[in-house]
Write a protein that binds this DNA or RNA. Sequence first.
DNA 1: GCCCAGGTGGGTA
DNA 2: TACCCACATGGG
Length: 228
Amino acid sequence: MRKRLLTLYQLLLDAYGRQHWWPGANPFEVIVGAILTQRVAWANVEKAISSLKEAGLMDPQRLSEAPLKKIASLIHPCIYYNEKAKKLKAFLTFLEERYRGDLSLLLCLPVSSLRKELLFIRGIGQETADSIILYAAGKPSFVVDAYTRRILNRLGLIEERAKYTDIQALFMGNLPKDASLYNEYHALLVCHGKKCCHNTRPLCDGCPLRAMCSFPQQGTITASVKEM
DNA sequence: GCCCAGGTGGGTA
DNA sequence: TACCCACATGGG
Protein backbone atom coordinates (compact mmCIF):
# COMPACT_ATOMS: atom_id res chain seq x y z
CA MET A 1 0.00 0.00 0.00
CA ARG A 2 2.86 2.35 0.85
CA LYS A 3 4.29 1.93 -2.64
CA ARG A 4 0.91 2.55 -4.26
CA LEU A 5 0.34 5.73 -2.28
CA LEU A 6 3.80 7.01 -3.17
CA THR A 7 3.23 6.13 -6.84
CA LEU A 8 -0.08 7.98 -6.77
CA TYR A 9 1.61 11.03 -5.27
CA GLN A 10 4.38 11.00 -7.85
CA LEU A 11 1.94 10.64 -10.76
CA LEU A 12 -0.12 13.58 -9.50
CA LEU A 13 2.99 15.68 -8.89
CA ASP A 14 4.33 14.92 -12.37
CA ALA A 15 0.97 15.79 -13.93
CA TYR A 16 0.09 18.96 -12.04
CA GLY A 17 3.23 20.23 -10.29
CA ARG A 18 3.35 21.77 -6.82
CA GLN A 19 0.12 23.47 -5.76
CA HIS A 20 1.39 25.83 -3.00
CA TRP A 21 -1.64 25.49 -0.73
CA TRP A 22 -3.57 26.70 1.32
CA PRO A 23 -4.76 29.85 -0.44
CA GLY A 24 -4.94 31.88 2.80
CA ALA A 25 -2.83 34.82 3.90
CA ASN A 26 -2.57 33.80 7.58
CA PRO A 27 -3.82 31.07 9.97
CA PHE A 28 -7.05 32.89 10.80
CA GLU A 29 -7.92 33.37 7.13
CA VAL A 30 -7.21 29.67 6.56
CA ILE A 31 -9.65 28.76 9.35
CA VAL A 32 -12.35 31.06 7.97
CA GLY A 33 -11.81 29.54 4.53
CA ALA A 34 -11.95 26.00 5.92
CA ILE A 35 -15.34 26.68 7.51
CA LEU A 36 -16.76 28.52 4.51
CA THR A 37 -15.65 25.92 1.98
CA GLN A 38 -17.80 23.18 3.48
CA ARG A 39 -19.83 21.93 0.51
CA VAL A 40 -19.02 25.12 -1.39
CA ALA A 41 -16.98 25.82 -4.52
CA TRP A 42 -13.79 27.69 -3.64
CA ALA A 43 -14.61 30.53 -6.08
CA ASN A 44 -17.57 31.48 -3.87
CA VAL A 45 -15.45 31.22 -0.71
CA GLU A 46 -12.99 33.70 -2.24
CA LYS A 47 -15.80 36.20 -2.78
CA ALA A 48 -16.90 35.83 0.84
CA ILE A 49 -13.33 36.21 2.14
CA SER A 50 -12.86 39.35 0.03
CA SER A 51 -16.07 40.82 1.47
CA LEU A 52 -14.93 40.10 5.04
CA LYS A 53 -11.58 41.71 4.32
CA GLU A 54 -13.14 44.79 2.75
CA ALA A 55 -15.36 45.15 5.81
CA GLY A 56 -12.25 44.92 8.02
CA LEU A 57 -13.52 41.77 9.73
CA MET A 58 -10.76 39.30 8.85
CA ASP A 59 -9.61 39.42 12.45
CA PRO A 60 -10.72 37.23 15.39
CA GLN A 61 -11.54 40.14 17.70
CA ARG A 62 -13.41 42.27 15.15
CA LEU A 63 -15.27 39.31 13.66
CA SER A 64 -16.41 38.14 17.09
CA GLU A 65 -17.82 41.61 17.79
CA ALA A 66 -19.68 41.78 14.46
CA PRO A 67 -23.42 41.02 14.42
CA LEU A 68 -24.40 37.59 13.11
CA LYS A 69 -26.59 39.14 10.40
CA LYS A 70 -23.75 41.31 9.14
CA ILE A 71 -21.44 38.30 8.85
CA ALA A 72 -24.15 36.31 7.08
CA SER A 73 -24.69 39.11 4.55
CA LEU A 74 -20.96 39.38 3.85
CA ILE A 75 -20.57 35.64 3.22
CA HIS A 76 -23.76 35.48 1.17
CA PRO A 77 -22.05 33.98 -1.92
CA CYS A 78 -21.56 30.80 0.10
CA ILE A 79 -24.50 28.44 0.32
CA TYR A 80 -25.84 27.98 3.88
CA TYR A 81 -24.53 31.44 4.78
CA ASN A 82 -26.70 31.68 7.91
CA GLU A 83 -25.38 28.36 9.20
CA LYS A 84 -21.80 29.30 8.35
CA ALA A 85 -22.08 32.65 10.10
CA LYS A 86 -23.13 30.70 13.22
CA LYS A 87 -20.19 28.32 12.76
CA LEU A 88 -17.73 31.21 12.54
CA LYS A 89 -19.25 32.66 15.70
CA ALA A 90 -19.05 29.28 17.43
CA PHE A 91 -15.34 29.06 16.65
CA LEU A 92 -14.70 32.61 17.87
CA THR A 93 -16.68 32.05 21.07
CA PHE A 94 -14.67 28.89 21.71
CA LEU A 95 -11.42 30.73 21.04
CA GLU A 96 -12.36 33.54 23.40
CA GLU A 97 -13.61 31.32 26.21
CA ARG A 98 -10.84 28.71 26.16
CA TYR A 99 -7.84 30.59 24.77
CA ARG A 100 -8.61 34.25 25.59
CA GLY A 101 -8.92 34.88 21.85
CA ASP A 102 -5.30 33.94 21.26
CA LEU A 103 -5.20 31.77 18.14
CA SER A 104 -1.51 30.95 18.53
CA LEU A 105 -2.23 29.36 21.93
CA LEU A 106 -4.71 26.98 20.30
CA LEU A 107 -2.59 26.18 17.26
CA CYS A 108 0.52 25.36 19.29
CA LEU A 109 -1.17 22.30 20.83
CA PRO A 110 0.03 18.83 19.80
CA VAL A 111 -1.94 17.35 16.88
CA SER A 112 -4.08 14.94 18.93
CA SER A 113 -5.06 17.59 21.49
CA LEU A 114 -5.69 20.20 18.82
CA ARG A 115 -7.92 17.80 16.90
CA LYS A 116 -9.96 17.01 20.01
CA GLU A 117 -10.37 20.70 20.77
CA LEU A 118 -11.48 21.54 17.23
CA LEU A 119 -13.98 18.67 17.08
CA PHE A 120 -15.51 20.01 20.28
CA ILE A 121 -16.69 23.09 18.36
CA ARG A 122 -20.11 22.90 16.77
CA GLY A 123 -19.76 23.15 13.01
CA ILE A 124 -16.28 21.69 12.81
CA GLY A 125 -16.17 18.09 11.69
CA GLN A 126 -13.24 15.84 10.89
CA GLU A 127 -12.34 17.27 7.49
CA THR A 128 -12.50 20.88 8.66
CA ALA A 129 -10.51 20.04 11.80
CA ASP A 130 -7.79 18.32 9.77
CA SER A 131 -7.69 21.21 7.27
CA ILE A 132 -7.12 23.62 10.15
CA ILE A 133 -4.43 21.42 11.73
CA LEU A 134 -2.60 20.94 8.44
CA TYR A 135 -2.95 24.33 6.77
CA ALA A 136 -3.34 26.76 9.68
CA ALA A 137 -1.15 25.03 12.29
CA GLY A 138 1.22 23.41 9.79
CA LYS A 139 1.05 20.05 11.57
CA PRO A 140 0.70 16.60 10.01
CA SER A 141 -2.94 15.47 9.93
CA PHE A 142 -4.08 14.11 6.56
CA VAL A 143 -7.21 15.74 5.11
CA VAL A 144 -9.73 13.34 3.60
CA ASP A 145 -12.28 15.06 1.38
CA ALA A 146 -14.77 14.03 -1.28
CA TYR A 147 -12.07 14.07 -3.97
CA THR A 148 -9.74 11.87 -1.92
CA ARG A 149 -12.50 9.36 -1.36
CA ARG A 150 -13.60 9.38 -4.99
CA ILE A 151 -10.12 9.03 -6.47
CA LEU A 152 -9.03 6.25 -4.10
CA ASN A 153 -12.25 4.41 -4.74
CA ARG A 154 -11.76 4.65 -8.52
CA LEU A 155 -8.27 3.19 -8.13
CA GLY A 156 -9.63 0.31 -6.06
CA LEU A 157 -7.66 1.33 -2.95
CA ILE A 158 -10.73 1.82 -0.76
CA GLU A 159 -14.36 0.86 -0.81
CA GLU A 160 -16.95 3.54 -1.41
CA ARG A 161 -18.23 3.33 2.15
CA ALA A 162 -14.84 3.39 3.86
CA LYS A 163 -14.85 5.56 6.96
CA TYR A 164 -13.04 8.87 7.25
CA THR A 165 -10.73 7.65 9.99
CA ASP A 166 -9.86 4.51 8.05
CA ILE A 167 -8.93 6.47 4.93
CA GLN A 168 -6.89 8.87 7.02
CA ALA A 169 -5.13 5.97 8.74
CA LEU A 170 -4.33 4.52 5.33
CA PHE A 171 -2.29 7.61 4.47
CA MET A 172 -0.86 8.32 7.90
CA GLY A 173 0.05 4.70 8.53
CA ASN A 174 1.92 4.38 5.25
CA LEU A 175 3.49 7.79 4.75
CA PRO A 176 5.93 9.72 6.92
CA LYS A 177 4.18 12.17 9.26
CA ASP A 178 5.23 15.17 7.24
CA ALA A 179 2.97 18.23 7.03
CA SER A 180 4.47 19.47 3.76
CA LEU A 181 3.88 16.05 2.16
CA TYR A 182 0.26 15.88 3.42
CA ASN A 183 -0.28 19.47 2.29
CA GLU A 184 0.92 18.80 -1.24
CA TYR A 185 -0.76 15.39 -1.48
CA HIS A 186 -4.19 16.72 -0.52
CA ALA A 187 -3.83 19.74 -2.81
CA LEU A 188 -2.89 17.46 -5.71
CA LEU A 189 -5.87 15.18 -5.06
CA VAL A 190 -8.22 18.18 -5.15
CA CYS A 191 -6.52 19.54 -8.26
CA HIS A 192 -6.91 16.19 -10.00
CA GLY A 193 -10.47 15.75 -8.77
CA LYS A 194 -11.49 19.08 -10.25
CA LYS A 195 -9.85 18.50 -13.61
CA CYS A 196 -10.19 14.81 -14.22
CA CYS A 197 -12.38 11.78 -13.57
CA HIS A 198 -15.08 13.96 -12.05
CA ASN A 199 -17.97 11.85 -13.29
CA THR A 200 -18.91 8.22 -12.90
CA ARG A 201 -16.47 6.77 -15.42
CA PRO A 202 -13.75 4.60 -13.84
CA LEU A 203 -10.89 6.66 -15.29
CA CYS A 204 -11.16 9.10 -18.18
CA ASP A 205 -9.04 9.04 -21.33
CA GLY A 206 -5.67 10.65 -20.78
CA CYS A 207 -5.95 10.39 -17.02
CA PRO A 208 -2.46 10.60 -15.49
CA LEU A 209 -3.45 7.83 -13.05
CA ARG A 210 -4.17 5.21 -15.69
CA ALA A 211 -0.78 3.65 -14.98
CA MET A 212 -2.13 2.61 -11.57
CA CYS A 213 -4.94 0.55 -13.05
CA SER A 214 -2.53 -2.38 -13.37
CA PHE A 215 -2.43 -2.71 -9.57
CA PRO A 216 -4.35 -5.67 -8.24
CA GLN A 217 -7.68 -4.79 -6.63
CA GLN A 218 -6.90 -6.49 -3.35
CA GLY A 219 -5.92 -4.57 -0.28
CA THR A 220 -8.88 -2.23 -0.30
CA ILE A 221 -10.19 -1.07 3.04
CA THR A 222 -13.68 -1.72 4.28
CA ALA A 223 -14.56 -1.40 7.93
CA SER A 224 -10.97 -1.24 9.00
CA VAL A 225 -7.63 -0.66 7.35
CA LYS A 226 -6.01 -3.77 5.99
CA GLU A 227 -2.71 -4.58 4.34
CA MET A 228 -0.85 -1.77 6.04
C1' DG B 1 -34.53 24.28 -14.93
C1' DC B 2 -31.26 20.87 -13.16
C1' DC B 3 -27.14 19.30 -10.95
C1' DC B 4 -23.43 19.69 -7.97
C1' DA B 5 -19.62 21.92 -5.37
C1' DG B 6 -12.87 20.85 -1.02
C1' DG B 7 -19.54 19.17 5.08
C1' DT B 8 -21.87 19.06 9.38
C1' DG B 9 -25.30 18.21 12.89
C1' DG B 10 -29.62 16.54 14.43
C1' DG B 11 -33.25 13.23 14.26
C1' DT B 12 -34.86 8.57 13.70
C1' DA B 13 -34.94 3.56 13.49
C1' DT C 1 -24.42 2.40 13.61
C1' DA C 2 -26.60 3.86 9.42
C1' DC C 3 -29.41 6.57 6.98
C1' DC C 4 -32.02 10.81 5.88
C1' DC C 5 -32.71 15.61 5.88
C1' DA C 6 -31.88 20.66 6.50
C1' DC C 7 -28.86 24.20 5.34
C1' DA C 8 -30.52 27.25 0.70
C1' DT C 9 -25.84 30.16 -3.61
C1' DG C 10 -24.04 30.27 -8.08
C1' DG C 11 -21.90 28.45 -12.29
C1' DG C 12 -22.05 25.18 -16.06
